[in-house]
Design a binder for these strands. Structure first.
Lengths: 199, 199
DNA sequence: CGCTTCTTTGGACAGTTGTCAAGAATTTTT
DNA sequence: AAAAATTCTTGACAACTGTCCAAAGAAGCG
């Protein structure tokens, strides 16, 4: 009992620190984020980070894992209540656009960390895992759409995800650069993509 | 005459240094590349970099511009000699797969720098310019394919580029993670994407 | 209360970073 | 050949990095 609550407290503080780290990373990007800057975004001193995390890589890895929960949840779109193909495509497109519009900085961080994972092998496994869960999420939409249209997907899971991700990333780039049409373009692109992938 | 040759020599050395910087960046990524490491990849000392470039940002910006020339040239596929839609799709797919297979590290760097441009405004304009030229390159293929099939593209330039780029990036990620099928999957995905975008 | 265990601090460390400037080395000009 | 202009090296600087540690503080427990 006593031991249990202690472990919980440690885990809680870890999450708290990782949360601050996540926000700092989202603000500054991986290349410009230091442990001291992260600590400045908490009520604690920089030394504490090494009490709860062995080193920088472990902290950021923990961050990435925590990000995943938020991410898939945020990213996920209400696909269950769609009754027609049109409704589903609409819901999917709206969900993606809303995810981008609500948390552009978090998604910016995701693309940053995914790029880092190509250099730093320590991040690779976790990033790949998140990528896979995002891919599954997209695939659920594609198969649901195929079911509603009595057709079958004409592409692989990986291809479907790659194309949606491409649209999303391009929209994010333009959105951050100040384009006011980026969100609408993403909506339209996503809506029109689904029919292309089944048949 | 004298003035001309001097300016040329300066420009030549700048290019030489930027080339070394480019290779260092491709090896280590933006976050892990320092001016001293770049200088170590040249025959000169670190101080020289500040003789030819005002600061780090100017050097990397110059790099990015230089990268563009290589990039579009490398990326570009032999579309002219294709006589049938099938040949064109094949040539396009082969070109992309070859670009990825020949210089994965350079493409890895591209995605890294594009992510950086979302944080560092100094890179944004140059990155956007490269992105646009890549988009135009893809669009040339799409319109050529549409012409050969007596059809019209059913998507915008930005959408076409986003989807090809998504495929390419996903293939790069898997290729770097050791997947042996990534190149073939990219080929197949690109070949099948063109028909989806016209009609 | 004292005693033990767990948290947290703040400073120190060795190394790295971008930047700069003085001067050596080299090239060009006269 | 001397003088002038340039290219390049070297060492220094202040700031910052991740990491570690001794000690202060807080909390729990007998």
């Amino acid at each position: 009992m006593r031991r249990r609550t202690r472990v919980d407290k440690v885990e809680e503080r870890r999450r708290e620190l990782a949360d601050a780290a996540l926000h700092t990373l989202a603000d500054l990007g991986y290349a410009r984020t230091s442990l001291r800057t992260i600590a400045d975004n908490t009520a604690f001193s920089h030394g504490l980070l090494h009490y709860y995390f062995a080193d920088k890589v472990e902290l950021i890895t923990y961050c990435v894992r925590q990000y995943k929960a938020d991410c898939v949840q945020r990213y996920d779109v209400a696909v269950a209540e769609a009754a027609t193909p049109g409704q589903l495509a609409e819901a999917c497109a709206d969900g993606l656009a809303a995810a981008l519009g609500d948390a552009p900085l978090m998604h910016r961080l995701w693309y940053d960390l995914r790029a880092q994972s190509m250099f730093e092998e320590a991040f690779r496994a976790d990033v790949a895992e998140i990528d896979e869960s995002l891919q599954n999420m997209i695939w659920r939409n594609v198969t649901a759409y195929a079911d509603l249209t009595d057709a079958k997907p004409t592409c692989t899971q990986a291809e479907a995800y790659a194309m949606f991700d491409g649209l999303f990333q391009q929209a994010l780039l333009r959105h951050l650069a100040g384009s006011t049409e980026a969100l609408d373009d993403l909506r339209r692109g996503a809506r029109e993509l689904l029919p292309r992938l089944v048949g």
